[in-house]
Design a protein around this nucleic acid. Structure first.
Lengths: 186, 186, 186, 186
DNA sequence: CACTAAGCGAGACGGTACGTCGCGTCTTCGA
DNA sequence: TCGAAGACGCGACGTACCGTCTCGCTTAGTG
């Protein structure tokens, strides 16, 4: 007989997982509650995922929350501004923020989530390469400028400001960050 | 009798708190364990701190872990490199990393820790102002460049790279980040 | 502070334990159910008794179910008949039978219950000694007859017939058993 | 196609059942474990036996564990001593004791096992009749003495002493029990 | 010798109870 | 008068078996 690749109600489970994460935050995300809400028995969850994190990682991978539009506005500045805005939205929209922040700040103590995070950013970086290739072709980028460093600076500053400094990241900030990076990398 | 401003064994409690945080991570930091290790009754902890986070915040404030040397190397580049290196060390040294990352990424779900984080970075920024004042005086900084943005970019890129991207931040990276920011801000 | 010698609601717990044992039998006696019925939390039960058997043993010791009237009818035959009838009642009355049989046949696999059983029968034997002393004084007992053997034969035959052979033990049987033993031991 | 009278691997299943009963005792005898050990799927077990007890009863009937040699030593005393010794061995040999005691003390809560027990003892009694017929012919038995009562006394005393009183049943005890019964019944 | 139905293996599932951990509260006593 | 000590209710943990279901593959015994 064919082995399934997941429980029958996987969709309901993932949905319940992300809803509960959004509502109550990471450490009040209880497997029992996921089971109840998704109409599945607790044992089924443990049959498929060894831990809360593994379940959450699966739910995230399945969710499409991390989908990404890579812009092509015709200028590096335009592209970076767009990306910066996307990041900002991801971190502040009430739909995505709780999930995203809870997940991605999970850090080295949670291998499964760390892996989600890493692969998300690796994928993202790969898909953003064209931005920099086009910029290089247009002469908007200093030779030797490392696109990864550029993205680290840009994305990092937004994360940092929002989550660590506890501040806001208004459009003016985004613009100034982009311009500073751009200026330094061109 | 005089009302104390904390339990008699506050030091032992703080020490136990930070040790356990370091050893087992934030969410296995159990109040019961703190009580046991510090030789205090659980009741006492609840008397003084309403929650794990409040206790942890107090322990952190007391710890001096977030002490900061503000450099003065004579050049903005030197100062920023020093600061970048300090940040890097804080995030990677086995003594500080667990505490720092666990605490500061706590985010909006944990008001007490968020407050610790915010006040830490606000204080830090205040103490770093002189770097930028001296730099401005030396003409190393473009007029209108916002020191906070500069620090967001620099610090953010290191956090981002280490914690989210799951990568390393070798000296070469630090240098390139500093140079890009510097270049963009001068 | 003084340490208690049992949980506050010990009485309710013991009552619930024996009721549930009576209703559902030994292996459907669930600790969770005892907790629910006695209005106590499951953890409280585990705090005081390490296992179902330990709890049950405590409930039994507390219950007085094993109380024993030692008869003195003036003749050995009368005394033995009375004892036989008591045993029979213990094993067939709807109030005592479930508890008694479930408990006492527990055997060597359940140390706690075995201990209850052993101490019950040891105590019983001790209290029955006078029957035999009086009988000896009256010359109703052959010299060298071992009272324990007499009781083993008498009690054992009743247990055996009721529980193992699955039969009944009507008054006639009791009489015949008593007479045979008596005859053999005089 | 012919309907089978049991699963193809019935032997392996019975063996596994009795082994596990011996090793872990009645209530840790898990159907899942039987299935695993006998290399059969759990479904198959449920297909053939509605319950653990039914399976165990079948295994016991199949096992020949309850085989019985009816002695003929030439005297009632000799025959009864032999039977007593057999019973004692059945209850104490490490091969038979766990199975026998677990099964036969099961009591009224377990109809299937009770039935095994009842039919075992009925069969046994039937096969022991000749002992008493020969004894009667030899004049060793008082007229009106009920062989069943004799066996209840004898067998019961051994069971009682070993399982309930938690004592031993040394040869001297067996002899005294036999003699008392014999004396009382002749 | 192929057909065909009973028998079986495999896997997933809902469900009950287990025994444990840590939480946060309360009461009572002792220093 | 503070705080230590202990008991407690509570929620969730992760696990073990239970008994059931569905779905194809095996495997005989017959036609």
């Amino acid at each position: 007989m064919r082995t399934q690749d997941g429980p029958r109600k996987a969709e309901a489970i993932f949905a319940a997982t992300l809803e509960l994460l959004t509502e109550h935050g990471y450490d009040k995300l209880a497997i029992e509650a996921v089971a109840t809400r998704s109409g599945v028995n607790k044992t089924t969850l443990y049959r498929w995922w060894p831990s809360k994190d593994a379940l959450l990682a699966a739910a995230l991978r399945d969710s499409g929350l991390f989908a990404l539009d890579v812009p092509d506005t015709g200028s590096l500045r335009g592209d970076l501004l767009t990306v910066a805005t996307q990041i900002h939205r991801l971190l502040t929209s009430e739909h995505t923020a709780p999930v995203v922040t809870a997940t991605l700040t999970a850090g080295p103590r949670r291998p499964e989530l760390g892996e989600v995070s890493r692969s998300f950013f690796a994928d993202r970086m790969a898909r953003e390469q064209p931005i920099f290739e086009r910029a290089a072709a247009r002469g908007e980028l200093r030779a030797g400028a490392d696109p990864v460093v550029v993205m680290d600076l840009l994305a990092g500053s937004i994360w940092f400001r929002l989550l660590l400094r506890g501040g806001e990241a208004d459009p003016k900030f985004l613009e100034e960050a982009v311009d500073t990076v751009l200026n330094g990398a061109s």
